[in-house]
């Protein structure tokens, strides 16, 4: 896991692309990370969902750009540093690694073991967020807070504490503790390497 810090220490501009299904809450997850990045001193955060064709269950994407300075280019991410995949079955439906920079990180919610996957040129982090979320007391299929724990474990980007605060704030009227617990368990159990 030594790659984590090297990967980001020199970066003032980080692009994260989120792949999920309509209704899975990828936008909310990206928004929580955006908020945590902003309060951590990233003056520029821009989160842009795919536009106009969202349907429940259909593959959707969200772009999150994080920068030390104001972001003027609102166009979609073409060469992400990180891709977050909320459903492993999307690997068969969408080209999730499209444009991913060499050495980039894939954060994947999957019931399969880490060893099951082989991504050439990329680093991988996996956890069974679907099971972890149920363990944390969330309804089956709610994975958008757990995945934030995996993202942090894989990248060491913002620190888990600030993300936990962001999750509890976002879900303050909708089970804040269960959601933050899912992220904490995911943070502990995520297997990362590559």
């Amino acid at each position: 896991m030594a790659y984590k810090l090297e990967f980001f220490m020199s970066k003032d501009y980080i692009e994260i692309r989120w792949h999920g299904r309509g209704g899975q809450g990828a936008i909310t997850a990206a928004k929580i990370v955006a908020g945590a990045a902003f309060v951590s001193g990233y003056a520029g955060v821009v989160m842009a969902p795919t536009f106009g064709t969202e349907r429940r269950g259909a593959p959707v994407m969200t772009s999150l750009k994080i920068s030390r300075t104001k972001i003027y280019d609102l166009s979609p991410i073409e060469t992400p540093d990180i891709v977050v995949v909320l459903d492993h079955l999307l690997l068969k439906e969408a080209d999730v690694t499209h444009g991913l920079k060499p050495g980039g990180i894939i954060v994947l919610n999957t019931p399969m073991a880490f060893e099951f996957y082989h991504f050439k040129d990329y680093k991988l982090a996996t956890a069974d967020i679907t099971a972890i979320s149920v363990e944390a007391g969330l309804p089956h299929g709610m994975v958008n807070t757990g995945i934030i724990g995996s993202l942090e474990k894989a990248t060491n980007l913002l620190g888990i504490d600030i993300l936990i605060r962001g999750i509890e704030e976002e879900f303050r009227t909708r089970g804040p503790k269960k959601n933050s617990l899912a992220a904490k368990i995911a943070f502990e159990r995520t297997v990362a390497g590559g």
Binding site: F38, V45, M47, A48
Partner: peptide
């Protein structure tokens, strides 16, 4: 539309 209306920023 979308580029500003649906995009999040501070």
């Amino acid at each position: 539309g979308y580029i500003l209306s649906h995009t999040y920023m501070p």
